[in-house]
Simulated scan of single mutants.
Amino acid sequence: MPGSTAHRNTTTRDRHRAAIRRGKPPCALCGEDIDYTLPHLDPGQFVVDHIIPLARGGSDELDNKQPAHRECNRLKSDKTDAEMAKAAQQAGPRVFVTDRTW
């Protein structure tokens, strides 16, 4: 059904968060370490990302979850990891202007 979301059991959600947090793994999206002590809403805070987003038919099971920074997860949105990798490849390397002549 378009626009519907999966019903989430908060006990299961908390158990999955604890299982992922226990190993203190790095962010699955950017590869950087996660500070698991950061407060709620901090961009670097630990959140759980769905590998295949719920909006794309992914399950709410532990094997479809991975650790992420809040900001990385926000940027990923409802894309799959493969879509993220393809977009990054198409974008090419970033070019920063460090010297200007006016």
Rank of each mutant, 00 (worst) to 15 (best):
G3V: 09
A55G: 00
D49I: 00
Q45G: 11
Q90S: 08
F46L: 02
A28S: 11
I51M: 08
D35W: 08
A55N: 04
C27F: 01
D42W: 06
D42E: 09
G23I: 10
V47T: 12
L75I: 14
V47A: 11
C27H: 03
I51Y: 08
S77P: 05
H40R: 13
F96S: 09
A82N: 10
S77K: 03
Y36V: 01
H16N: 10
R56V: 15
T98S: 00
D35L: 00
V48A: 13
C27T: 06
P43Y: 08
F96V: 06
D63K: 02
L75N: 15
R15Y: 10
V97F: 02
K65E: 13
R94H: 08
S59G: 12
C27D: 07
N73W: 02
C27G: 07
A28G: 14
V47H: 03
L41T: 15
P53L: 02
Q66H: 11
D33S: 09
G92H: 05
D63Q: 02
K79Q: 15
R17Y: 07
A28I: 07
E71G: 10
M84D: 13
G3N: 14
A85T: 15
I20H: 01
H50P: 10
K86G: 13
G92L: 04
K86C: 11
R94G: 01
V48P: 00
G31D: 09
K24Y: 00
R22G: 05
Q45S: 15
N73P: 06
T37H: 02
S77E: 15
P2A: 02
K24W: 01
M84R: 11
L41G: 13
T11Q: 10
K24T: 03
S77F: 09
I20T: 07
D60P: 03
A6F: 08
E32Y: 01
R8T: 14
L75Y: 10
L54I: 14
K24S: 05
Q90A: 09
D14K: 05
D78L: 08
H16V: 11
R22H: 11
D78M: 05
P43I: 08
R22C: 07
K86W: 04
P26D: 06
R15E: 12
I34E: 08
K79C: 09
R74D: 14
C30H: 05
H69W: 01
P26L: 01
F46V: 00
P43G: 01
L75E: 14
R70P: 12
K24E: 07
H40L: 12
C72I: 14
A68P: 05
R15W: 07
K24M: 03
I20C: 01
